[in-house]
């Protein structure tokens, strides 16, 4: 009982803490790649605290409700991850949160917000099936959706599921709002259709969307750790390499349109997953 409580608290604290640090590192790394110095490591925290104490301006009260559900859902997903719960359950809880953010954006009449919301829906349409396929691959290999069992699997999953890891990379790129998939809204200082999905969230509510985003980043990086769960070193190297590649990709690619995103992510993503799944079931 006490262990559960400790895990819940760990999840709730480490979500924003790790997410914020990762986002700070991301900004510094991006700046260095563009031969700039970049902001301090804790800049994302400064931003969020500042936003929390700004005057609350609400376009539509639904936004307030939606953004709270978004943060609740993404934090519950991370807590469930820490509690070593069921992977499918975690994915669906996270999806509920993501949908609520879109509903909030749709409740405003601003065209930027509307277009951003439509694009976000298309992005979800691209990555959600892939995430489910990744989880299915993990199930076929380990025989369980339960995280506690997957983490106790004796061998690293990456050699068995290399293509599915690439597929997870696609989902991660979309979720982190990185080029070439930063259509609905863009992270950091970039602008796209003003701020797309987040245009009409402001002040404390914008801060909440940011915190929710940190939870999601932690969750997705947690999913990446599943692929090398046998040793801490392997896990660390895998995470660092994946994130470095994400930032590199962000800096060397330009933003594409949603048609390209849908066809590439589905075409390449589904093909890679299928090859990997067939290999697992037939070859193994």
């Amino acid at each position: 009982m006490t262990q559960t409580a400790i895990l819940i608290v760990c999840g709730l604290i480490s979500g924003p803490l790790l997410g914020g640090l990762v986002s700070g590192l991301d900004r510094i790394l991006t700046a260095r790649m563009q031969s700039r110095i970049g902001p301090p490591l804790f800049q994302p925290f400064y931003d969020v605290i500042k936003l929390c104490f700004k005057e609350p301006l609400v376009v539509n009260v639904w936004q307030v409700f939606c953004v709270h559900v978004y943060v609740a859902a993404s934090s519950i997903a991370v807590v469930l991850f820490f509690l070593q719960s069921d992977l499918l359950l975690i994915l669906f809880v996270q999806a509920v949160g993501a949908v609520m953010l879109v509903v909030g954006a749709l409740s405003s009449t601003s065209p930027f917000s509307q277009i951003g919301a439509q694009r976000e829906l298309l992005q979800m349409l691209s990555y959600e099936p892939l995430l489910v396929l990744v989880v299915v691959g993990i199930y076929i290999e380990t025989g369980s959706f339960k995280l506690s069992q997957i983490y106790h699997w004796p061998d690293p999953l990456l050699p068995k599921l290399p293509f599915l890891f690439i597929v997870l990379g696609y989902a991660l790129t979309i979720k982190l709002r990185k080029s070439p998939f930063d259509l609905s809204t863009c992270h950091h200082g970039h602008q796209e259709i003003v701020k797309g999905l987040l245009t009409d969230y402001s002040g404390p509510f914008l801060a909440l969307t940011e915190v929710g985003h940190w939870f999601e980043v932690v969750l997705l990086l947690g999913l990446c750790t599943l692929f090398w769960s046998t040793s801490w070193v392997g896990m660390g190297i895998l995470l660092a390499a994946t994130y470095f590649l994400e930032v590199l990709l962000d800096n060397i690619t330009s933003r594409m349109n949603w048609r390209w995103m849908l066809s590439t992510v589905w075409g390449v993503g589904l093909a890679l997953s299928l090859v990997n799944l067939i290999w697992l079931t037939q070859g193994g």
């Binding site: 700046a31 902001p39 301006l57 200082g189 701020k195 245009t199 914008l206």
Partner: peptide
Amino acid sequence: CLTPVYDIERFGIINVGNPFHAD
């Protein structure tokens, strides 16, 4: 000011396109 020569992001300054987010 946004270019690498001046790099205003050092001070946490971001050029936003949205009055709702601006200080």
